[in-house]
């Protein structure tokens, strides 16, 4: 009897206990995941839509509803790109992605009608080093592209003046180089995809 009891205590009980804890934990997390799944998907959609609006330089109220309303009103989906009617004329918005230092950087680039002047730029996703490369997501950086046209030259942070110069990010040489390549490619891609050149 005693041997049986220790066997139970030593082998069976820990297993049963672990199993119970695992099942319980997974039930809780799964339940929560399933209940919030729709919301997470909606967020993702709203995020992409906002990037499109930002790139096109279109005005919107920064709430989920505001984004949806502005998007549905102004943006048309074309084959591989988007067009939008802004207050200063037609905008072409193109999703572009390319390598960053650590992972893929995905951006939305908005063009004015000449397809070389940027109307805006928004980051969809990036995985660069926090505090260094990840600063490409900061508004001061993305705003620089507005009204400028490619090919861009990246210069030291805080010294950009000419209409094709962009402030690079100090300490993130690599990310800046990748980003320069990406934005310059965006302009050629735009002409190819939209005009078929």
């Amino acid at each position: 009897m005693k041997a049986k009891a220790t066997f139970y205590k030593k082998r069976i009980y820990p297993l049963v206990f672990m199993f119970a804890v695992t099942v319980f934990c997974i039930l809780i997390t799964s339940g929560l995941y399933l209940t919030t799944q729709d919301r997470a998907i909606a967020n993702e959609l709203s995020f992409t839509r906002r990037a499109i609006l930002d790139a096109g330089g279109l005005a919107y109220t920064p709430t989920t509803e505001g984004i949806e309303k502005a998007y549905l009103e102004k943006v048309t989906v074309e084959d591989g790109y988007y067009t939008a009617q802004s207050s200063d004329g037609l905008r072409y918005i193109l999703p572009v992605q390319g390598p960053g230092l650590w992972g893929t950087i995905a951006i939305m680039v908005g063009f004015e009608q000449d397809l070389s002047t940027f109307s805006g730029l928004a980051i969809v996703s990036q995985n660069e080093t926090p505090g260094l490369g990840a600063r490409i997501e900061e508004p001061w950086f993305t705003k620089q592209f507005q009204g400028k046209s490619s090919p861009f030259i990246f210069v030291n942070e805080g010294t950009a003046q000419a209409p094709n110069e962009i402030d690079a990010i100090t300490g993130a040489t690599r990310t800046s180089e990748y980003f320069r390549n990406l934005t310059n490619r965006a302009a050629t891609d735009a002409k190819r995809i939209i005009r078929g050149e």
Binding site: G98, P99, G100, L101, W102, G103, T104, R174, R185
Partner: peptide, 8 residues
């Protein structure tokens, strides 16, 4: 072009 360099 278009890919991340593993060695980098």
């Amino acid at each position: 072009n278009g890919s991340i360099m593993p060695f980098a």
